[in-house]
Design a protein around this nucleic acid. Structure first.
Length: 445
DNA sequence: TACCATT
């Protein structure tokens, strides 16, 4: 079926709305395709914007690479498509991890070529890309991949901090790019800052002892929940913990006050009788000062996958663990254990825009710009079985329109989600969460 | 002060 020396290609810069069937015509003009797979998130099934492509013939792969790589830009993308042998094909060349550099503090006007010239003296460059925003302006940083680790290290040694580029606010940064684990962590931190939660490392507030004690007590419960749900799915676990924390913080005005008041179920954990910290930072610091976090050495989390470990890791750094106070605090009965992710684990495919029965579908507005299907899904997973989660995207720019729909398989979940999340403040905005209007609602007859 | 996308 395929030649013994066939090459598996990695294809990058694919719009997330294109599936295999859409991509096939683009690639089959270079030969018969043996396999074409869009890369999706293992747990959520979300399109990652790239794919693997194997032609039956080696020659077809070479033709496709030379015709397409960096040559053509797919609609909605701001960089040309990437077509090159997958990392797994690398013979002799080391993993990209230890030879790929992140370069920061570049001038906004520096191009790929400018950066390449700067790094050329240190060795052969495989890849050199300035990162750009949706409007095409440089983010002032780039990736530079050398063929070997030593060359990359040499570039760091002589270039890092060596000069200040025109227009840059400080001297050139040259370091190894984040590993996958670090990227996960960084994403979590972004979400954390979206929610107005800050690193305890940067703050120095006095500890809240009573609060800290209460939180400490809750940690036991939290560990139990984590242990339980770990059997379902790591993401579901994380989502559940995260959402309970968020919802509870929200309910207590620690990071936000919902427009729709949530009545704390009093006395579930005795929390309501404790002095509430006036803001998230104090809570964070209090916990951190005592060195408490829910994922100690013996925690059941120890054996979980990298994604979850990334979350667990973040708790060390960002003090996310400072917000567990919350258990049982959400007025709304806490949603049944989410199972959608676990199911999807077997069948990650065709997560189309399914709609639930009337009363099961909710409309969410004022989503953060950077929330995609995946983030919104995670946000609502804890309220029940999610049938679909769709953020609407501008077709021209591929940018979120900041609203979307989530469908559950039962009305109670939808109500729980509305109750807990309507008015939830994120940054300067509050989520609007309400039942989706039935299709024919506004039609006269 | 930013980290694209590798099953």
């Amino acid at each position: 079926m395929k030649e013994a020396d066939a090459i598996k290609l990695f294809v990058g810069q694919i719009p997330r709305n294109l599936e295999e069937k859409d991509l096939k015509p683009i690639f089959e003009q270079f030969g018969k395709i043996y396999e074409l797979t869009v890369i999706k998130d293992k747990y959520t099934g979300m399109h990652k914007g790239c794919a693997f492509l194997t032609y039956c013939a080696r020659e077809s792969a070479l033709k496709a690479q030379s015709a397409l790589h960096e040559q053509k830009t797919l609609p909605g993308m701001n960089r040309p498509i990437q077509v090159k042998p997958a990392d797994s094909e690398g013979r002799g060349v080391g993993l990209s991890e230890d030879r790929k550099l992140f370069v920061g503090m570049l001038g906004k006007q520096q191009s790929d070529e400018d950066v390449r010239r700067l790094f050329e003296p240190f060795g052969s460059i495989d890849e050199c890309t300035v990162l750009r925003g949706p409007d095409g302006t440089s983010k002032g940083c780039a990736f530079v991949k050398f063929q070997g680790h030593a060359e990359a290290q040499a570039a760091i040694n002589s270039l890092h901090g060596s000069r200040t580029m025109p227009g840059a606010s400080s001297s050139l940064v040259v370091k190894f790019a984040d590993t996958e684990k670090e990227r996960g962590l960084r994403r979590m931190q972004q979400v954390a800052s979206q929610l107005g939660i800050f690193s305890p490392m940067t703050l120095n507030f006095p500890a809240y002892n009573a609060y800290t004690q209460a939180v400490n007590a809750q940690l036991v419960q939290q560990q139990a929940l984590v242990a339980q749900s770990a059997y379902l799915s790591p993401v579901a676990t994380v989502a559940a913990v995260q959402m309970q924390q968020m919802a509870a913080l929200n309910a207590n005005g620690i990071i936000a006050t919902p427009i729709t008041p949530i009545t704390p179920s009093s006395g579930v954990n005795g929390y309501s009788s404790l002095p509430a910290p006036t803001n998230g930072q104090q809570a964070t610091e209090a916990l951190y000062t005592n060195g408490i976090h829910p994922y100690q050495a013996q925690s059941p989390v120890a054996a979980l996958d990298p994604l979850q470990q990334a979350y667990a890791g973040m708790q060390h750094y960002t003090g996310w663990s400072a917000y567990p106070a919350a258990y049982g605090l959400v007025g709304q009965p806490f949603p049944q254990q989410p199972t959608m992710v676990a199911q999807q684990h077997q069948q990650p495919q065709q997560q189309q825009q399914r709609e639930g029965p009337e009363g099961c579908n909710i409309f969410i507005y004022h989503l953060p710009q950077e929330f995609s299907d995946s983030e919104m899904l995670q946000m609502f997973l804890p309220f029940g079985n999610v049938i679909s989660a769709k953020v609407f995207v501008d077709r021209a720019t591929n940018q979120s329109k900041c609203f979307g729909f989530v469908s559950f398989d039962n009305p109670a979940s939808a109500q729980a989600a509305i109750q807990a999340m309507n008015g939830f403040q994120i940054g300067m905005k509050r989520l609007k969460v309400q039942l989706k209007r039935p299709k024919d609602a506004n039609r006269p007859y």
